[in-house]
Design a protein around this nucleic acid. Structure first.
Length: 431
RNA sequence: UCCGCGAUAGCUCAAUGGUAGAGCAUGCGGCUGUUAACCGCAGGGUUGUAGGUUCGAGUCCUACUCGCGGAGCCA
């Protein structure tokens, strides 16, 4: 008998098949019994009628508890009354393991309870939908760059010093070489890659030890960072908007059932097409002040400010040319206005905040040396980075996209903790 | 680090300072098309910890612990 998955049942109508999985739920009406089997690709109900199957098969229903592992054999039937449109006319039941009392019942649970059981929570349909969207987003990210001639140059996780010298890092002992830090960004290494390969991206986990406690922060999160040689800020923004359009349209095309299961209103997502609006920081400040917010030129945008600005647009908005004082040392200043950096942040709609941060990089050796001194960074730690300016420096630019914020936005979640299989937060290291 | 909110059955939550309850889950019974099925019965409690006020505290007060949200910081 052929072993099949639930998602392919439509191709096996009328056939006898074998399905293997776990008990999602069961219902009985006396002489007719329904077993809901979950196999990771979907849920289907098996139907048994008393008298139509041997009594020893019929009573196996009584033993099965939620999440017990078992197999069903039977004939696939199109059935409009069944969830999913198909059901299995059960001829045999094989029990593999009876589950102990399963803690996650089909009723409501609190966030803390579920987070403590994240390893089980992943079995639920909502988490299933989120992880399948996450997977599709990551595939879109890789396809996008792979199809455009980018080379994957991953950056190290263990680094000798802070990349940007600003945020708090996780620290560890590294043999006899002193302290090492978990990376907060692969960008500096991606720059080396860009000057070696022209177009590169790195994609991996990054770490921040800030004691942030908000719905937008994790201690460990994934970031993809493309870097392109012979590119300026406009090229960078062109790439970012094409990239976002590709990601969102890929998810809309291939994960519509999952978005529906998440009850996501997709109208904002359907709008994500080029061109995306581009406004300068100065224009953003004008918007904030026109809304009566007490915002002064020179400050960085806070969470509320980002929400107010993004509400003015029906799709992600790019804010460029921030005051250089609030941006990292490696960002090139605008030759037309040295007070601002050639930086861009992309703000997602609906208050999801910054999902992309990027810039054109400082490519002049002397200027970069001055920035390192201004930021009180140890020059010796950056000598290799300065070499990139000593040996054939060129204008180059790149950006980083935070995967979890992107998943939260596309899925319409209210917290990034559901966007990654095992979230790491300030007060949570397990499971 | 600061501000706010919270902690009662395995879970989600009720309970005017006066006998701690319901739904789900679990066990038993019933039901020939269920859709988080439904109906009946049963078991299940040191009300986060420590102290205080009171004739009497789940409820009021103090401290602490843990969690959640926000601010700051950051992406």
């Amino acid at each position: 008998m052929k072993r099949v998955y639930i998602e392919e049942l439509g191709r096996h109508v009328g056939e006898e098949v074998l399905l293997q999985g776990w008990l999602y739920n069961k219902r009985s009406s006396g002489k007719i019994r329904f077993l809901l089997l979950r196999d990771g690709t979907g849920v289907v109900q098996g139907v048994m009628m008393k008298g139509a199957v041997p009594e020893e098969t019929f009573v196996k229903f009584d033993d099965l508890t939620q999440e017990s592992s078992f197999a069903l054999r039977g004939k696939v039937r199109k059935e409009d009354r069944a969830p999913g449109g198909f059901e299995l006319e059960v001829s045999d039941v094989t029990v593999y393991a009876i589950a102990k009392e399963y803690p996650i019942t089909p009723k409501d649970h609190g966030v803390e309870f579920l987070a403590d059981r994240r390893h089980l929570w992943l079995r639920s349909s909502r988490q299933h939908a989120i992880m399948r969207v996450r997977h599709r987003i990551i595939k879109a990210i890789r396809d996008f760059f792979d199809d455009r001639g980018f080379t994957l140059i991953d950056s190290p996780v263990l680094t000798p010093a802070a990349c940007e010298g600003t945020s708090t890092l996780f620290e560890t002992e590294y043999f006899d070489l002193g302290k090492a830090y978990l990376t907060q960004s692969g960008q500096l290494y991606a720059e080396a890659g860009a000057l070696a390969f022209g177009k590169v991206y790195c994609f991996g986990p990054t770490f921040r030890a800030e004691k942030s406690k908000t719905r937008r922060h994790l201690s460990e999160f994934w970031m993809v960072e493309p870097e392109v040689a012979f590119a300026d800020l406009n090229d960078d923004m062109d790439l970012a908007e094409e990239f976002l359009e590709y990601i969102v349209q890929s998810v809309l095309k291939d994960r519509a059932p999952e978005l529906k299961a998440l009850e996501r209103n997709i109208s904002f997502l359907e709008n994500v097409k080029r061109p995306l609006p581009r406004i300068s920081y100065d224009e953003a400040v004008a918007i904030l002040q026109s809304k009566g917010l007490p915002f002064e030129w020179g400050n960085d945008l806070g969470g509320t400010d980002e929400t107010v600005i993004s509400e003015q647009f029906d799709r992600p908005v790019m804010v460029h040319r921030y005051p250089s004082q609030v941006k990292a040392f490696y960002m090139k200043r605008d030759p037309n206005n040295p007070k601002v950096a050639l930086a861009v942040d992309v703000l997602a709609p609906e208050g999801y905040g910054e999902i992309i941060g990027g810039s054109q990089r400082e490519d002049d050796l002397d200027v970069l040396l001055e920035r390192i001194r201004e930021h009180n960074l140890p020059q010796e730690a950056f000598e290799w980075y300065l070499d990139l300016r000593r040996y054939g420096t060129v204008p180059h630019a790149g950006f980083g996209l935070g995967v979890e914020r992107t998943v939260a936005w596309i899925c319409g979640l209210d917290h990034v903790r559901e966007t990654i299989p095992f979230p790491r937060m300030i007060y949570r290291l397990t499971p």
